[in-house]
């Protein structure tokens, strides 16, 4: 009788462990909702610069690099504007440059 009760107890214990393991494996954990905060960046006053994506896509650009990029942008834009003045056409006015701020 004692042996029967022990066997029954072991069987119940094994069943409980199996059920617990099965429950743990199949449980859908409620994942915490991830809220994406819009990134707010310090943007310079807009004159030559910049509503351009490339500018925003470069995080932590050193100031010196940024200033060089602006300088290069101004030179290219000025050259494009001078080409337009030399031969005024819509194509010349709207031509693209290789400025790092607009690509």
């Amino acid at each position: 009788m004692i042996m029967l009760l022990m066997g029954l107890a072991l069987a119940m214990f094994g069943l409980a462990v199996t059920a617990a393991a099965f429950g743990a494996a199949t449980r859908n954990e409620a994942k915490p909702e991830v809220r994406v905060q819009p990134r707010v960046e310090a943007v310079p006053e807009r004159f030559f610069a910049d509503p351009h994506r490339a500018f925003h896509q470069q995080p932590n650009v050193p100031l010196e690099v940024l200033l060089l990029q602006i300088e290069q942008h101004v030179r290219l834009e000025q050259a494009a504007a001078e080409s337009f003045i030399h031969l005024p056409t819509s194509e010349a006015l709207n031509c693209r440059t290789e400025s790092p701020l607009v690509h």
């Binding site: 006053e45 100031l63 200033l67 300088e71």
Partner: peptide, 16 residues
């Protein structure tokens, strides 16, 4: 011309 870049006034090339 001076332009505010990240809170500082920087001399930005306008023309050479």
């Amino acid at each position: 011309l001076p332009m505010q870049v990240f809170g500082h006034d920087e001399d930005i090339l306008v023309e050479e």
